[in-house]
Design a protein around this nucleic acid. Sequence first.
DNA 1: AAGTGGTCTAGACCACTTC
DNA 2: AAGTGGTCTAGACCACTTC
Lengths: 249, 249
Amino acid sequence: MNESKELAEVAGAESLGFRPLYRQVRDRLIRRLVDGVWAPGEPLPSEIQLAAELGVSQGTVRKALDAMAAENLVVRRQGRGTFVARHDEERIMFQFFKLVGDDGRRTFPQSRVLGLSVAKANAAERATLKLAKDTRVIRIRRLRSIDGAPVIVENIALPEPMFPGLAAMELPNNLYGLYAMRFGVTVASTREQLKAVSVCETDAKALSTEAGAPALKIDRLALSLERQPVEWRVSVCLTDKLHYLSELR
Amino acid sequence: MNESKELAEVAGAESLGFRPLYRQVRDRLIRRLVDGVWAPGEPLPSEIQLAAELGVSQGTVRKALDAMAAENLVVRRQGRGTFVARHDEERIMFQFFKLVGDDGRRTFPQSRVLGLSVAKANAAERATLKLAKDTRVIRIRRLRSIDGAPVIVENIALPEPMFPGLAAMELPNNLYGLYAMRFGVTVASTREQLKAVSVCETDAKALSTEAGAPALKIDRLALSLERQPVEWRVSVCLTDKLHYLSELR
DNA sequence: AAGTGGTCTAGACCACTTC
DNA sequence: AAGTGGTCTAGACCACTTC
């Protein structure tokens, strides 16, 4: 039995072209993730349970879950179940952190907060984070080091309303984990723009190098499950012993 | 009927762990692509035909073809058929060429050959391209420009035995298309390592800029369908009006 | 109208994990 | 032994393209 018409009505998509059942199931399950029905690391109900509950076949649920696994939203483990993806350091490291030592080793850098402030968003922040006028942002400046050697200075801007109280918290190394755990905000994808630049005076001091040295500037916008801007981060990286790894197929 | 045992024997994989049927079908179809049974742009037989020929269900063929489509090896078009992926400029541009104008426009740069030579591979080339001692390489140096402005100098190394006669050919803008059409070599994936560097004297002259200017160095290794090294390319890019775009999820 | 890939179902069995 | 996801089949029907 094909219930796509009913589900389409439930999801509120009338005749916007053809939208297959498994897509609707996927969208409904993502909505539940957004709503925090299951916390990161928790198992979802089994395929059979979800199929019965949603009134579709197990195969359709499987196709929806496979699509979500391909998007790194859930993790599937044969014999165990399907789990909400977690933002632990290991995942961040392989999914979003592309800097690798020239010897091939990946090391997650330690962080030290250099400065933190809250203020009205400036024009660039409003445009990048798609903020309404007068929205406040939290600005964080951090120095990141590997084996004690400073390699990255980063300037982070966050929409204050999305992260109430964050400015007063102790900040961990892995901010994405904090966003997920404390604010229910999941970073699902990022867009990074890379350029080569000369290090400016200020950054040079923080990095213990000379002004004018070449550095890799990474301008990153992080998006939530709902594709809303969550964080804008501009990093300046010394790439003497590191490189940015990009694998394409 | 499940014929996985038979196919496993055909493929010569005995008890190397479990290897599902659709995987074996995928591997056999990739072998045919490597052998040039179907040329780029040509349609494969329909799912039903392949299923009958290989003695598996249509669903299993579908799963194999879907996996190949996810790897960009074939293109599937509803109502028309499944086609061998082509290395046309448009595909290269979106799949392997990550430099985008700061205005968001993608422009495939024009190329001019600055130099070409054939010689025994040096140690670095042997190591990177996994070549036997005394193997010869073709070295190409090109200048690439957008709207007439030079933005990239690239140094390319190719294993001579894989591309016999290439050194004497007229070289098009899009080398990957040439490799596929004239030598049956498909670039299926690349690994890029990015660093920020200072432009050296020689490159500065070619790029009409000053030595010491910051530039993005892209060290790219291209692999074939069989994951053999095909091309080593080191590009030095001026990123004043361009950036390298990396989208992660 | 005929042919293609895309979706959906139902059911059998397998690989793997947990108890 | 029981439960999970993974594979495979067979068959119906749909969306889309071509003739």
